[in-house]
């Protein structure tokens, strides 16, 4: 806003104005469907999940183990070199407790999500997943967790083949 300007344009309307027809609106739902080829790296990653394993790719130049895997290293800008299995145990790097679903709808029961660094992945290389069998107030950064898998016959080669990660006690 400048002191030299006296009027700013724009006409507000409420959601109720829309729902009760006081605003002219034209409604449409565009139809757009997709079938994404998973690609080389993610294809192998998903196939391994179906077998109950988590696989990454290693770049021998920077030494990083990348999870999820990629066929090229974005830092060295060269092909990655080998497939490396990582553990289904890891450490919580950060977490949050979501009361919102994908369309910003309220969830009755919140879900806990976390960035988890799996054992065998390089420091700071985390994956996104959910936490379970734990109360929100009990979750801590640095907590040790382990994957809880779907039964083998129910797996379909998707990130959801891991149901969630649960806390583990380590002595």
């Amino acid at each position: 806003m400048s002191v030299k300007v006296k009027e700013y344009r724009g006409t507000y309307y409420s959601r109720k104005d829309l729902e009760e027809g006081r605003v002219m609106a034209f409604k449409d739902r565009p139809e757009a469907r997709y079938a994404w080829a998973t690609g080389v790296a993610m294809g192998r990653f998903l196939a391994e999940l179906k077998q109950g394993r988590i696989v990454g790719r290693k770049c021998r130049v920077c030494g990083r183990v990348l999870v999820p895997p990629r066929m090229f290293c974005e830092m060295c800008f060269r092909p990655t070199d080998e497939w490396v299995y990582v553990s289904d145990t890891g450490t919580v790097l950060t977490y949050s407790v979501s009361y919102l679903g994908p369309a910003a709808e309220r969830l009755k029961e919140p879900i806990i999500i976390a960035v988890i660094q799996l054992d065998g992945a390089s420091p700071g290389i985390g994956i996104l997943h959910k936490l379970g069998e734990v109360k929100p107030e009990e979750v801590k950064v640095g907590m040790r967790v382990k994957a809880v898998w779907k039964p083998p016959e129910e797996r379909e080669g998707a990130i959801t083949d891991i149901l969630y990660f649960r806390p583990v006690e380590e002595g």
Partner: peptide, 30 residues
């Protein structure tokens, strides 16, 4: 928000039911 969720990776992230506020919450916590 629903349209916003299409910025996430379709194969890895979207099946987890991601909401855009997640990434802010995770970053704020960190």
């Amino acid at each position: 928000q629903k349209a916003f969720t299409t910025i996430f990776d379709p194969i890895y992230t979207r099946p987890l039911g991601a909401n855009l506020v997640w990434i802010f919450a995770l970053e704020m916590q960190r």
